[in-house]
């Protein structure tokens, strides 16, 4: 059984200060939950940059390449058709479809990667500790798991930052 300690703020600037305060004390933060993306929080939590843009790039590359080569194959090998004496391999007219497929595959590969990586999707049940997080609560969650402090010490540390309504639960994870 690992204890989870959490409390909230009603202002994102207080949250940012509290995050820094806790980190200065050497306490690891398990999660921060906010109603909207807080500017500067990623840097404060030292989150690594997301790889999603790379997924989109690779997806786009695959979509574009496949789209272009498919059209080239159709008009040179698959079934070359003569359209008014125009060249079989007319690359400029393949560009629109290639572009659309690039965008389509890039966007969807990134969207799917986002959901998979974040463990979100239809039927996903979240572990919500405070329903007001989607309203105006900025929540800090500390876990006994990645800290050497006891439950009471964590509660004290979090309360010392000015967090409101500090609670603790015992979670399986």
């Amino acid at each position: 059984m690992r204890a989870i300690v959490y409390g909230y703020f009603t202002d994102e600037l207080d949250l940012l200060n509290a995050v820094k305060e806790l980190q200065n004390k050497g306490i690891r933060i398990a999660d921060v939950r906010t109603p909207f993306p807080v500017h500067g929080l990623d840097a404060a939590l030292k989150l690594r940059r997301s790889h999603l843009p790379k997924v989109a790039f690779v997806g786009g590359l695959i979509g574009g390449t496949l789209g272009l080569f498919f059209q080239v194959w159709v008009f040179t090998k698959g079934w070359p058709l003569n359209f008014g004496g125009k060249p079989f391999l007319s690359l400029p007219s393949f560009i629109p479809v290639t572009f659309e497929l690039t965008v389509l595959i890039a966007a969807f590969s990134m969207g799917i990667a986002f959901l998979l990586r974040s463990n979100l999707g239809p039927g996903s049940i979240p572990d919500i500790l405070d329903e007001e997080v989607t309203d105006d609560h900025f929540q800090i969650i500390l876990s006994e798991k990645n800290n050497n402090l006891s439950e009471t010490e964590l509660v004290e540390a979090l309360a010392a930052t000015g967090a409101l309504d500090v609670k603790h639960v015992n979670a399986e994870k």
């Binding site: 999660d31 921060v32 939950r33 906010t34 109603p35 909207f36 993306p37 807080v38 929080l41 990623d42 939590l45 989150l47 940059r49 997301s50 999603l52 843009p53 989109a56 786009g60 572009f99 659309e100 965008v103 890039a106 966007a107 990134m110 969207g111 986002f114 959901l115 990586r117 974040s118 463990n119 979100l120 999707g121 239809p122 039927g123 996903s124 049940i125 979240p126 572990d127 919500i128 997080v133 989607t134």
Partner: peptide, 27 residues
């Protein structure tokens, strides 16, 4: 999709929105 407002999710969400905007603009 079981959204819980986690900072990591927001970070990915923002990064994705920006790239999607970049893709959708020429689209």
């Amino acid at each position: 999709f079981g959204w819980k407002g986690s900072a990591r999710h927001w970070q990915r969400h923002e990064s994705m929105s920006l790239i999607l905007a970049g893709l959708a603009a020429p689209l």
